[in-house]
């Protein structure tokens, strides 16, 4: 039976592996009808055997394999490509810059502006990051003042007075007082005094908005003006602080509550006043 070409090749390879001369071994099969295939396969096999050893950086110690050595990690940690790190860092920097620019630009925005929500949310984030009572109280006073300025700016630009700004203004003042009560004596008194001044200023500011607003808006604004008056009164009766302002002389309605204001009746209920007495709480229209 004729030996297959595959077996002849295998035999030739074994002979060569034992040290035989490849030329002589191949010559023995010169008469084979598929001699050329045999020759090509044999040459190819020898070329493969002749491939170089791989470069070895370092043979790891066996103790690392078994996990008995803590000095080295066998499998090298996959390092994050430098380019990827650069890209991530650049993205972060870009996002941060964009964020800062947006926040900066939102600083002068008023309700209705595209960036106004950014301004308010940034305030919330800043407040959440604050730790000290004094820092928080001062920040809330600043926010309260800002709401009043925004309301005045809105009216000045011919827009409608946004009463939610007054609610926020009251809320911020209340938070300022809450934080002030947690401070030691002298610091507490200072913040309370400054809050009293702020409340008095707010009363004047709301009155200004009231004067410049349309007749249809006046009933709602009158309510907030009354609330301002009551808050001012409460600050006086609770803490004994009475702030006088030049406008007191020009407008009789500013010295006390606004009950006498253009013949309107005060819309702040007795229940709300009682609630205010417990704490300086924000008021909402009935």
């Amino acid at each position: 039976m004729k030996e297959s070409l595959e077996n002849i090749l295998d035999r030739c390879l074994d002979d060569i592996a034992r040290g035989g001369d490849p030329g002589k071994i191949l010559a023995e099969h010169r008469d084979h009808p598929e001699y050329e295939s045999l020759r090509d396969a044999l040459h190819m096999a020898m070329d493969l055997k002749d491939l170089p050893e791989p470069p070895v950086s370092k043979v790891p110690d066996f103790s690392i394999i078994t996990g008995t050595s803590g000095k080295e990690t066998l499998i090298r940690r996959k390092t994050i490509p430098f380019r990827l790190i650069t890209r991530i860092a650049a993205t972060f920097v870009l996002v941060f810059i964009l964020l800062m620019v947006t926040v900066q630009a939102s600083g002068s925005s008023i309700p209705g502006d595209l960036l106004y929500p950014v301004k308010r949310n940034y305030e919330k984030i800043r407040f959440a990051c604050m730790i000290g009572y004094r820092q928080r109280a001062e920040f809330k006073m600043a926010c309260s003042n800002l709401r009043l300025e925004e309301a005045l700016e809105s009216v000045k630009k011919g827009g409608k007075a946004d009463v939610t700004l007054f609610s926020s203004m009251f809320d911020d003042t209340r938070h300022a007082l809450d934080n002030a009560f947690s401070l030691p004596g002298k610091e507490r008194d200072e913040i309370i005094f400054r809050t009293a001044y702020l409340i008095r200023k707010q009363k004047e500011g709301v009155y200004q908005v009231y004067k410049e607003s349309s007749d249809s808006d006046k009933p709602v604004l009158a309510h907030y003006l009354c609330a301002c008056g009551k808050r001012d009164e409460l600050m006086g009766s609770t803490f004994g602080i009475k702030i006088s302002m030049p406008s007191d002389e020009s407008c009789s309605g500013m010295s006390e509550c606004c009950e006498c204001l253009e013949g309107r009746e005060c819309s702040v209920s007795a229940a709300e006043i009682a609630k205010m007495k417990k704490s300086i709480l924000p008021l909402s229209p009935k």
Partner: peptide, 16 residues
Amino acid sequence: PEAVRIMQFRSLIELK
């Protein structure tokens, strides 16, 4: 082993 011999031969020819 026979299958290996056949495959090695074919693989070498294909490689060539």
